[in-house]
């Protein structure tokens, strides 16, 4: 019995790639997530799929995690994917533009058709709970008196660019400590090993609420619903803005008819109340942007990052 099934199973495995290409979407749609499983980008993709299945009941979606090198590997894989619409992917800032700026990437923003943005995670400035610093003014003043050690997530990350922007505004120089990610930053702040840290809201709001650390500013246009007591940088006289966005893209060369279908799917998911509720539950801050809006955002971001790169290349 098994002997007979075996060749059959084998034949099926072999035949899969040749499955007839009927009307799009046919066959599984792969979403490339340029980070490892378990992160917030990964979660966004998986929630997106849950909702997208409702609108395209016949399509199958799979996540492909291509982590590492600050997302570069994944971004390149999206850009170089076969342009048949069966592969789309996610991008996140500032990494997606930072790789272009530092001339490491084998893609440019033109390699992508941008579908739109889903969520963002605003940048914050946080100090240890025991620190006397309570505002950005005091932070800048302290930095002028002595060298403050400030943790950021790696060179070229959103944290790093935000810290550089703040340095420029406040005319100070930090003793910057690059880390391998938010876990190290959290431990350094909670343990009082550094004087401050630039990081993202979702990574620290729980500790702020539990009074284990203090967020002294949020670097977005308006205050966050989650922490209405934290003033923005603009309010405090330091108009520094930074946020980490997470959106969807497709390879640029895909047939325009298929791209229209994908854009339509994206808009439908973004209007799906169940998806929105799920995101909220996951502590994601929705920042819906249409394709053209997000393209403009990415281009501005790239120009901005370019400026800081030229001053202090990495």
């Amino acid at each position: 019995m098994l002997k007979r099934i075996a060749p059959l199973a084998l034949a099926m495995c072999l035949a899969l790639p040749f499955a007839a290409q009927a009307e799009y979407p046919s066959g599984p749609v792969t979403i490339i997530v340029p980070s490892n499983a378990g992160g917030s980008t990964d979660a966004t993709a998986r929630l997106f799929i849950l909702s997208a299945k409702k609108f395209w009941p016949n399509a199958e979606f799979v996540v492909k995690n291509v982590g590492g090198s600050g997302g570069q590997k994944g971004f390149e894989e999206i850009a170089e994917a076969k342009p048949d619409g069966q592969t789309i992917g996610m991008v996140f800032t500032t990494q997606v533009v930072a790789h272009v700026v530092s001339k490491r990437a084998r893609y440019t923003l033109d390699s992508f058709h941008v579908m739109g943005n889903v969520a963002d995670d605003p940048e914050i400035v946080v100090v240890p709970a025991t620190s006397p610093i309570k505002t950005l003014d005091e932070f800048a003043k302290a930095a002028k008196q002595k060298s403050l050690t400030v943790a950021v997530n790696g060179i070229g990350s959103d944290d790093f660019v935000a810290a550089k922007k703040f340095e420029e505004r406040a005319d100070v120089t930090f003793n910057l400590m690059p880390t391998k990610g938010s876990t190290e930053q959290k431990a350094a702040i909670l343990g009082g090993h550094v004087d401050g840290s630039f990081m993202n809201l979702s990574q620290m709001f729980a500790q702020h609420k539990a009074a284990q650390a203090r967020i002294i500013a949020i670097l977005s246009k308006k205050r966050s619903e989650i922490l209405p007591d934290v003033a923005t940088g603009i309010e405090q006289g330091y108009p520094v803005e930074m946020t980490a966005t997470r959106g969807f893209v497709a390879p640029a060369k895909v047939d325009p008819a298929i791209l229209a279908k994908l854009d339509d799917l994206f808009q439908k998911v973004m209007a799906d109340p169940e998806f929105l509720a799920a995101c909220k539950k996951n502590n994601m801050y929705l920042l819906p942007m249409s394709g053209p809006e997000y393209v403009k955002y990415l281009k501005d971001e790239q120009a901005d990052t370019q400026r800081y790169f030229e001053k202090n290349p990495w």
């Binding site: 098994l2 002997k3 075996a6 199973a9 084998l10």
Partner: peptide, 10 residues
Amino acid sequence: IVLTTAGILA
């Protein structure tokens, strides 16, 4: 040989 191969791939 056939059984092991098929089993592993399955």
